[in-house]
Design a protein around this nucleic acid. Structure first.
Lengths: 368, 368
DNA sequence: CTGTTAGCGCTTTCAA
DNA sequence: TTGAAAGCGCTAACAG
């Protein structure tokens, strides 16, 4: 490791400056500036953070010297004192690439980002670290976070509490113990299923995103609410989810996931005449694959999405889907989080946003 | 500020535990655990970081007590010692919401995220803080960063050097002083312009994303290279960018930006028969607006994009565009950054990735 | 295997 | 207006 500069307190500044121009440099610290300026660390600190408390000459001299020596305050050391990092996190249970493979997530982040902008914060995406989301949660240098894709009983939530980190959950089951933002998944799902049933479809494949539990019966949170909605609509039509024609599959919530699931869809017996995707991204993939296989959508296959991404109405055919206010969801969650971070209130709150069925061109009356 | 627990060193542990159950709690620290377990701080530290160096009973006892008291190591304090934050940043000159309004950025982040995943890092999006990107750069708790949308002579680069933070630039002018990743913007631009010219178009609007300089002559970096490419193709056809039919506009690089620019496009004299957008997102917006105004694309207006986003071939009409390997761009940049972070080498390197013109359905022979 | 002792680099009373 | 000194909570030689 080449030659190191000894850290003797009384070290000559000239030595510092000399070595600073070399390859292996010791970072310039507040002490170096203080010494060089002939003032205390306090003064240097003031010069940067509360210049008003110093005579303007002193302040200026300190700042000048700092600039000369190329000094930049160490933000970590600062954080240790202030207990603020000026960043919030968004915790995701999958890796970053997967998370952003669904435009939904980018849109959510836009909403969160809007609030970050207002508050002067950065945004840290916190995925599992060496496979462990817990480890990542322990290590994250943040003032608070938004938790996505997890349930309220997740260990991550425990760690967040242990770390005393304020947090807001998105799409988790409402509970008195956590602050969270959701949408009316039940109603959105119910209406979309109802739409297909009204069009005469009886052979319907429901394509969910990966739940990591696999069993429809064990779904919780968003997935649970949506399936409750499907069941409700089916029931109104005298059907159940166990019916011969109703199939439930899972895939990654991305265009690629939709493409992948299409093949499995085509193996089903009876072959579905309609697909109910739990994410627009999946719907895109299904449509793309269907068209690649020469299938006409909606002529031979109706497809419904969920989300209403920005590009969903521009697809060919324009996608019938359930619109949820994604950006607002992120924004509201971030606003709640900022309240918590700033200690504005402590009572857990729950916000549920509305959804709306957007009937467009990817669904058609059966046989019509 | 309710009652505070005094911070007397000799404080009884029972007091701590009692107050820990109250509202205003002092965080449990390594000292509390050490005291309670009757060991030194060192031992506690080892229990968490190198359990092997402790007898398993001791380690277990410490961990148990820690869990009981709800102790979580303070990652900031840890970082101050280790000089690692386990996060890298991606610096963006606009706010987060704007950055992600272009799917290009999400795709870039996917590439970066892939490497983060491999390296066990989180990813911090660092936008300007109260309008100052410099301030944000000073404050970011990161081990290194990827810089987007900035030139090599930006002040941010100076601060990064001052902070001794390794960084990699994306789409900046190559220079011997910085490590960066670009694509062959010149060639992509040249080919796309050539394509339109071959189709007989002579009234062409070039829609650039915002440069914050405004003057085409003052463009640098990516924009500069692309315009050099346009000029080159024009020259081959005996034209110049100052020609009567050639117009240059700017707008935000997003769908909304494209929609916004469409109106301005329609005011131009002569009215363009083709649009060359510097981002697919802009192209989407232009097409959407054109269709909303009853214009046929490509019948009455040809549109070319740049990027080839995931959804670009699914649009109606499928977008003719210049494909650049966005995700790979992010990935390569992140890989270079990790090399720097881990001190694997110091020489600035420059990677230029190839592009490819994808001729699809949004362009048509003039009058054909 | 375990503890002592210095820090890491900055902020912040409190006193001068 | 300025400085001394005590932390912030943890890690890491080094010694035993």
């Amino acid at each position: 490791m080449a030659r190191f500069v000894s850290k003797t307190p009384g070290q000559e500044l000239s030595t510092l400056v000399d070595t600073a121009t070399e390859q292996m440099q010791r970072r310039v610290t507040i002490n170096d500036i203080a010494k060089q300026a002939g003032v205390s660390k306090t003064a240097v600190s003031f010069a940067f953070n509360m210049p008003g408390r110093l005579s303007s000459e002193t302040a200026q001299r300190i700042l000048d010297i700092a600039r000369q020596l190329g000094y930049a305050p160490n933000p970590i050391a600062r954080s240790l004192n202030t207990r603020r990092t000026n960043a919030i996190g968004v915790i995701v249970p999958q890796d970053i690439s997967d998370a952003f493979s669904n435009p939904f997530f980018a849109q959510l982040v836009r909403g969160i980002g809007h609030v970050c902008n207002l508050e002067g914060m950065s945004l840290m995406v916190v995925p599992p670290m060496r496979g462990s989301l817990l480890e990542a949660t322990y290590a994250a240098l943040i003032d608070g976070c938004i938790v996505t894709g997890l349930e309220t009983d997740d260990e991550v939530v425990r760690v967040l509490r242990q770390r005393n980190l304020p947090f807001v959950m998105i799409d988790a089951d409402a509970s008195d113990h956590v602050t969270c933002v959701t949408v009316n998944d039940f109603e959105g799902a119910r209406q979309s299923m109802q739409h297909l049933l009204k069009l005469g479809h009886r052979d319907i494949a429901i394509v969910s995103f990966e739940s990591f539990s696999g069993k429809v019966e064990q779904y919780t949170g968003t997935l649970r609410h949506r399936f409750d909605g499907y069941r409700s609509a089916l029931k109104d039509a005298g059907l159940t989810i166990q019916n011969h024609g109703i199939h439930c599959l899972e895939t990654k919530c991305s265009l690629a996931g939709g493409v992948e699931v299409f093949n499995r869809l085509m193996q089903l017996v009876p072959r579905p005449t309609a697909v109910l995707a739990l994410g627009d991204a999946i719907a895109f993939g299904v449509i793309e694959a269907a068209q690649a296989h020469g299938l006409n959508v909606p002529g031979q296959l109706s497809v419904v999405g969920f989300d209403d991404l920005e590009s969903s109405h521009m697809m060919r055919p324009a996608l019938t889907t359930v619109r949820q206010p994604i950006k607002e969801k992120g924004q509201r969650a971030a606003e709640l989080l900022m309240d918590l971070v700033h200690g504005r209130f402590g009572l857990p709150r729950h916000i549920m946003l509305p959804v709306e069925l957007m009937v467009r061109k990817s669904t058609l009356r059966l046989g019509g």
